[in-house]
Design a protein around this nucleic acid. Structure first.
Ligand SMILES: [Mn+2]
Ligand SMILES: [Mn+2]
Ligand SMILES: [Zn+2]
Ligand SMILES: [Zn+2]
Lengths: 136, 136
DNA sequence: CACGTAGTTTAGAATCATTATAAACTAGTT
DNA sequence: AACTAGTTTATAATGATTCTAAACTACGTG
């Protein structure tokens, strides 16, 4: 079974039709050993440099939102003028190099266990994300 | 010594002229027992509901940036369509209630010690911020 | 107390990431 | 083949933030 049919199946299983746009975006996002961080603009450039059949920016937005919704991507909490996403969907954290404006993964094993002692009535914890800002 | 002259002194010490706009913004931000979270728009409304002499939005932006620069305010790392700031400048963390879109302080004492084992060459840690997302 | 100047405020314009719109297109079903 | 819900797309709209440049002001100097 080739990657394209794996992506098609994955999309169908999520209730998303496996269009050629979504497949191509899957190839860029998931055909790689390493995970990576990207903005919508980054992704648009990567995708559209790969072939002459362009994918519109609107579709990139739609797809990233859909993939995030389905849990295939995570958005990184960060104060920047654009949103950053992560193909690494495991529980993990980030260094943010403020000067270089660069994100670096901090695996869960790179951070000691995090204990939250405060409880909020009727709410449960959905995620715990640590942002470590770096300076020189 | 009244609050206004305390603010004036604080501003002068930071190299900022104590204008009536900045003093008024200081009063809103710092004349209170409790710290709080706000967006630029929140602050603009609060400030301008207090008196008939309005402060322009540009000045609110300028002042918040200046105060953040000087360390009198912190920006909260969060994925939202506008920036959120905090008058609580102590080291602390946040709950984010995703449904209600509400931030809740998590004091340092509400979170166990956080150990970062990974090192980045030539960089040192500037801050460690935890965002705990809540769901029902 | 003028005066000069750097710093500040402001209205309004510009920017730009993101979202909305609605028409054309297509995957999957009958 | 025909139908339909879902998708893509160009384009417009939105809205937070930043920029601009002119008017204003705090404050040191003579
Ligand atoms: Mn980028
Ligand atoms: Mn608000
Ligand atoms: Zn990551
Ligand atoms: Zn806070």
């Amino acid at each position: 079974m080739n990657l394209v049919s794996i992506y098609a199946k994955k999309l169908r299983n999520s209730g998303l039709r496996p269009t050629k746009q979504r497949i191509k975006i899957c190839e860029v996002l998931f055909d790689t050993e390493k995970t990576f961080h990207f903005s919508i603009n980054d992704l648009s450039k990567i995708v559209n440099n790969k072939s002459s059949q362009k994918i519109s920016l609107a579709t990139i937005y739609n797809t990233v939102h859909a993939f995030k919704e389905k849990g295939y991507l995570k958005q990184i909490p960060l104060n920047a003028n654009q949103a950053y996403f992560d193909t690494n969907i495991s529980d993990h954290h980030h260094f943010y190099d403020v000067k270089e404006k660069k994100l670096i993964d901090l695996d869960n094993s790179d951070v000691g266990p995090i204990n939250i002692y405060k409880k909020i009535n009727g709410k449960k914890i959905k995620s715990v994300e640590v942002l470590v800002k770096l300076e020189d």
